[in-house]
Every structure is written in C-alpha cells, then in structure tokens.
C-alpha cells in the first residue's frame, strides 16, 4: 500500500494532514498514437492502478488516475514502483513505438482536461521529439577493466618498469622503497594511458552505428558486489541507435572485449531517458 508522507516542501507550509491531489494524473510517458489505437494499451500500473491513454491529435499521454504523491521511505516499495513504472513504459513502447519517457513520479493535477491542455500547449515540441525517436532506442555501455593482466604484461614490455625492477633488486631497503614508489607512479601512468586508449577505441567503434552518443559520469556509488574481481569503470556511454542497428552495435562491442581484462556491460533497448528533453513553459 502507498505510504503517505508530505514532501519536505509541503511540511514547511502544510499541516500534518496528507497531501492529496485534486484529480491527479500520474504520467509515465508520451507516445505517438498514430501508430496504434490508444485502447490497445491496457495494463496495470503503479499501486495497481489502471493505465490508459489521453490523446490529443496523435499524441498520447500514458497515465493512471492518482490521488496521492508516491513517496515512502520503504525501499522495497520504491523498488516495486520503479519496476512497475518501467513495465508500463515498456508496454507503451511495444504498442506505440519509442515513447518519450518521464521521470519517475511525475504527476499533473486537474484531470484529463488539464492533461489535454498541457499536451496542446507543448504539442509541436512533443510531436517533434517523438518523431526524432521513431525506430530509435537508447542503449547503454559500461566499459570495465580488470587491470591485472595488463600490469603483468606491461611489466616486461615497458623499459622504465624493467629498469626500475632491476634497480630494486640491487638496492638496499631504503632505496627500494623510493624505487617502488617510482615504479607505482610509472605503472599508474601507463594504466591511465591504456584506459584512455580503450575508451577512445570504444567510442570510435560505436560512433558509426549510433545516432547520438553521450558520455556519462562513472562516479556513481554503484558497485557490483557479485564480482570476485576488482574491476574499474573506465567509461560509460549512453547512445541512441536505430533498432535495426542493435546487432551491429553488439558486434562492434565484441571487438573491444577481445582486449585483455576488458568487460563490457551492454544494456537496452530502453526508452530514451538520457536524451529526453525537459518540457518547460
């Protein structure tokens, strides 16, 4: 069940009563309804609500009626909501083609009339965005690297590292400590160069088969506790690609994975969350 709690802003001004919404519409995404009848989308959404489409001139808002903001501190609940939300967007994509996806928990007040006014007010922009996404989906690639094989190989191949190793063997404890630091610095430098090389190779490999590409931040708190090997994230890309190019994209990723220690995580097809524009006034 939904856990009703006021948001931080509302707590400042409101009483302890629940924040209710007047004739709310929870908005999942906007779709091109010229490709299929709106009634073909019949599914259940967040919090067991019925999902339907409000249409204006070939552009449709995929919604459910809601009376409340979806907020909770229960992580399990949020997880279920998020998964359900995406299942609705996936179903909309199946029915109508690539949708314009909203951020989670986007709710409009004022019923179908308000929704229609909003669609009409931003009609051209929305329709153009939908047209640009036709037949196109977002894919995401994450380049990971276990550097151990590289470190082993480069130890013999790099002149500086070889020399430092030889000098270490011939040195006393104090000198050895300094030489180890130098060794480490040189190794880090070589690793960085190699990482840059791999990232560039990946970008070059996939650019010809995608319509748009954006590099994403690798500094997220995400980490994979299932992996027994320490892997570093080298680079992440989100791309927009024709659905017909999905195989070619995967094939090109395979050429990068042939390098030692490299892993590529390839996810999709997704609605274009990363490329969805904000829709303002």
């Amino acid at each position: 069940m939904t856990d009703h709690r006021p948001s931080p802003e509302e707590e400042q001004t409101a009483t302890n009563e629940e924040r209710t919404i007047s004739d709310g519409r929870y908005l999942y995404c906007v779709v091109d309804t010229t490709s299929a009848e709106p009634a073909t989308l019949s599914t259940t959404g967040v919090d067991d609500n019925s999902v339907y489409v409000v249409e204006v001139n070939g552009v449709g808002a995929v919604v459910h009626d809601c009376e409340t903001v979806y907020e909770t501190e229960d992580l399990e609940q949020v997880k279920r909501w998020l998964l359900t939300h995406q299942q609705v967007v996936d179903a909309a994509g199946d029915a109508f083609g690539t949708p314009l996806p909203m951020r989670f928990d986007t709710v409009l007040e004022g019923g179908d009339a308000s929704l229609e006014r909003w669609l009409e007010g931003h009609y051209e922009g929305i329709r153009d965005e939908l047209a640009s996404f036709t037949g196109v989906w977002e894919y995401r690639t994450n380049l990971l690297w276990d550097s151990a094989p590289f470190e082993e190989t480069i130890a013999d191949q790099d002149d500086q590292l070889r020399e430092l190793r030889q000098r270490k063997q011939q040195s006393g404890a104090g000198k050895r400590f300094l030489l180890e630091k130098q060794y480490d610095q040189r190794l880090q430098e070589l690793k960085r160069e190699r990482q840059t090389e791999l990232a560039e190779q990946l970008e070059e490999a996939i650019t010809p088969v995608v319509n748009n590409l954006t590099e994403q931040d690798t500094n997220t708190p995400l980490h994979d506790e299932h992996s027994s090997v320490e892997k570093e994230q080298i680079v992440r890309f989100a791309v927009l690609a024709d659905e017909d190019d999905e195989t070619a994209l995967g094939d090109r990723l395979d050429t990068i994975v042939e390098h030692e220690g490299v892993e590529i995580r390839f996810t999709g097809p997704w609605p274009p969350y990363t490329f969805a524009p904000d829709i303002g006034e």
């Binding site: 948001s7 919404i21 709310g24 908005l27 906007v30 903001v69 998020l82 939300h85 995406q86 314009l100 996806p101 909203m102 951020r103 989670f104 928990d105 986007t106 709710v107 409009l108 007040e109 004022g110 308000s114 006014r117 909003w118 997704w270 969350y273 990363t274 969805a276 524009p277 904000d278 829709i279 303002g280 006034e281």
Partner: peptide, 16 residues
C-alpha cells in the same frame, strides 16, 4: 536512470 533522467516537466499543474 528512472530517478534522475527522463523528461522533467515545468508547469503549474505539475504536483511532483
């Protein structure tokens, strides 16, 4: 991605 990306709507009728 779902929490941080996707279209954000600026409108008076947006509740949240």
């Amino acid at each position: 991605v779902l929490l941080r990306e996707g279209a954000v709507i600026q409108a008076d009728v947006i509740v949240t």
